[in-house]
Computed example of a mutant assay.
Amino acid sequence: MTLPDEKLPLRLSARVVLLDDADRLLLFSARNQTDGSLRWFTVGGGLGPGETHEQAALRELREETGLADVDLGPEVWRGRPWTTTRDGITYEVRQRYYLARVPSFTVDTSAFEEVERAAITGHRWWTAEELATTTDLLRPAGLPSLLGALIADGSPARPITVAG
């Protein structure tokens, strides 16, 4: 149990808002074991020892999609800190989201780590319109409007704070 004044260990994370040439966003899914709901989220994961956010974002792209040599764009969103428990340890998660635009391609998940193979149930490319009509849980929260603004207005001058 963590007391209110205790500092939680940090889990720094880099995520990628990966858009193809048709402005579709790649998301991965995981099923909630408690209620069966489906949650969709961007490419990405935790920083490894000594990695920068940008290095982690590029590594995660290789591992989760098979893409290498991607020109990583600017940080567009910064996640409001939240907590998660892994292996009995509660962490404070801090995420940075980077934009990357790529030609349409077939996703290759063969380099998934064991934890990803166990948790991720699928992936798909989404349009902003499809995101706006789904009843599944999307991360970050407000993803349809965030994506719509990103496509319409381009990258913000400074990262926008998002939930999740």
Results as ranks from 00 to 15, higher is better:
Gly73Trp: 00
Gly36Ser: 14
Val102Gly: 02
Pro49Lys: 13
Phe105Tyr: 12
Ala22His: 07
Arg24Gly: 09
Phe105Leu: 01
Gly44Arg: 12
Leu27His: 09
Glu116Leu: 04
Trp40Pro: 04
Ala57Glu: 09
Thr106His: 05
Phe112Leu: 02
Trp126Pro: 07
Arg94Val: 12
Ala68Met: 06
Gly73Val: 03
Arg39Gly: 02
Phe41Trp: 11
Arg39Glu: 11
Leu47Tyr: 10
Arg78Phe: 04
Leu38Pro: 06
Gly36Pro: 12
Ala132Thr: 06
Val102Phe: 08
Pro74Ser: 08
His53Phe: 15
Ala30Pro: 03
Arg59Leu: 08
Asp136His: 15
Gln55Ser: 13
Ala128Leu: 08
Thr34Asn: 14
Gly50Leu: 15
Glu63Lys: 05
Thr106Ile: 02
Ala118Pro: 05
Gly88Ser: 07
Thr134Leu: 09
Gly45Arg: 05
His53Asp: 11
Glu64Gly: 03
Glu130Trp: 11
Leu25Asn: 01
Thr134Gln: 12
Gly50Ile: 13
Trp125Val: 02
Thr135Cys: 05
Arg78Thr: 14
Ser37Arg: 15
Asp71Met: 00
Glu114Lys: 00
Leu47Gly: 10
Thr135Lys: 11
His53Asn: 14
Ser110Ile: 01
Arg94Gly: 06
Leu38Phe: 12
Gly88Tyr: 10
Leu61Ala: 03
Gln55Phe: 13
Thr52Ala: 10
Pro49Tyr: 10
Glu60Trp: 15
Asp136Trp: 10
Arg124Gly: 01
Ala118Met: 10
Ala100Asp: 00
Thr133Phe: 01
Ser110Phe: 02
Arg24His: 14
Ala132Ile: 06
Gly79Met: 07
Val70His: 00
Gly79Leu: 10
Thr127Arg: 01
Arg96Asp: 08
Glu51Cys: 15
Gly73Ala: 03
Thr134Arg: 13
Arg31Trp: 04
Ile89Asp: 01
Val93His: 15
Ala119Val: 13
Glu64Lys: 04
Pro81Arg: 07
Glu116Asn: 04
Ala132Asp: 13
Ser104Thr: 15
Ser110Asp: 08
Ser29Leu: 09
Val76Ile: 12
Leu26Gln: 01
Arg59Lys: 13
Asn32Ile: 06
Thr52Cys: 06
Tyr91Val: 03
Val115Gln: 05
Arg78Leu: 09
Gly48His: 12
Ala118Asn: 14
Ala22Gly: 00
